[in-house]
Amino acid sequence: MAGDEIGILCHGDGGGEFTVVDFTNFGHDGELCLLHQHGSPEKDIETLTQWRVKKVNFPQDNGPSVHHWITDAVVPIDGRFLCWVDNYQGILVLDVVLAIADEEGPVQLRYIPLPEKALQSGRRVDPDGDCPDAARCVGATAGGMVKLICVDEATSSSNRVMSSADFTV
C-alpha cells in the first residue's frame, strides 16, 4: 500500500465507525482494498479486521487518462465520499457507504474533470509525481465543497507589461 493512495473516512452516527480504503490503479483496471470498522464493540476481532478487495470500474466516457493518473491527495467529503485527486486531471469519487454495503460486483468511480482553464494551464512539475507541486493544492470545506487552488505564472496581456512576479490564482 502506498500512503498517497490511502483514504480514511469517519462516518456513522458518532459511534466510532470508519473505513480505510486503498486505491490501486493498474491502467484500465483498478482495485480497492477496504477495511470497515463498525462502531459496535459487540463484533468479534476477526470481523473487525477483514480487508475486502473490490474491482474498480473507471468512467469510460470523457474519463481521466488512467495510465497517467497520479494521486496528489485523498480528501474525505461529507462523511460519505472519498476523493482521489490528480491536480492536473480531476477527481475520482467513491461513495464509501455504497461500496461497503454492496457485497457483489465491482465499484463504479465517478470522475469530475478540472475546469477547462485549470486543465489547460500548467504542466506537472514532476512527471513521476514523487514531489508535490506547491502551485496546486486541493481541500474540502466543512460544507462538503471541494476547492482546487492553482497558482500559475501570468501571461502577458496587450495592455500592460508583466513582471516576473506576476501570477494568477
Rank of each mutant, 00 (worst) to 15 (best):
T155P: 00
L109D: 04
I149D: 04
A140K: 02
D22M: 03
V151R: 08
V161S: 13
S164P: 01
D130S: 09
N159Q: 06
A73L: 01
L94P: 00
S164N: 06
Q37S: 07
R124P: 05
V56W: 00
E103C: 12
A154P: 04
D126W: 02
N62K: 14
K55Q: 15
C150R: 13
I70W: 01
S164W: 01
N87K: 04
D130I: 10
D130A: 08
G30E: 01
G30Q: 03
V85L: 10
K55R: 13
A118Y: 12
H67E: 13
V53W: 02
D72L: 09
S157N: 04
T141A: 05
C137F: 06
G144K: 08
E5Q: 11
M162I: 09
V146A: 05
P127M: 14
A73F: 01
K43R: 07
D152H: 05
V93R: 13
I77V: 15
I70Q: 09
F167V: 13
M162E: 04
E5N: 15
D128S: 14
D95T: 10
H67Q: 11
G39V: 11
V96T: 14
V53D: 04
M145D: 10
C10V: 15
D102N: 15
V21K: 03
V56Y: 01
V96I: 13
Y88A: 01
L32R: 00
G63R: 06
V96W: 08
N159P: 00
R124K: 09
T24G: 11
I45K: 05
P59F: 03
R123V: 10
V53H: 03
I77Y: 01
W69I: 10
L82G: 03
F23E: 03
S157T: 12
H36C: 12
D29I: 06
A165P: 00
R123H: 06
L98Y: 02
D72G: 15
I149L: 14
P59R: 12
D44T: 12
H67T: 11
S121K: 14
A99L: 06
R110A: 15
Q50C: 11
E103H: 12
T155L: 10
V151D: 01
D72R: 05
N62Y: 03
K43M: 07
V107E: 02
N25I: 09
L114I: 07
S164Y: 01
A142R: 10
G79V: 02
K55T: 14
D130E: 14
V74I: 12
V20E: 11
P132T: 15
V75Y: 00
A134M: 04
L48V: 12
Y88L: 03
L48G: 11
G122R: 08
D29Y: 05
K54Y: 04
E116W: 04
H11M: 11
V138N: 07
E5C: 10
I149P: 02
C10L: 12
F81L: 15
V138H: 02
H28F: 05
T24W: 05
S157Y: 00
P132A: 13
W69E: 06
P132Y: 05
A154M: 11
E153T: 15
E5W: 03
R80F: 04
S158Q: 13
A135R: 15
T71V: 09
D22H: 09
S40P: 00
P127D: 12
D44L: 07
D72K: 04
C131W: 00
L119E: 11
T24H: 12
R136I: 09
H28G: 08
I70R: 14
I100D: 02
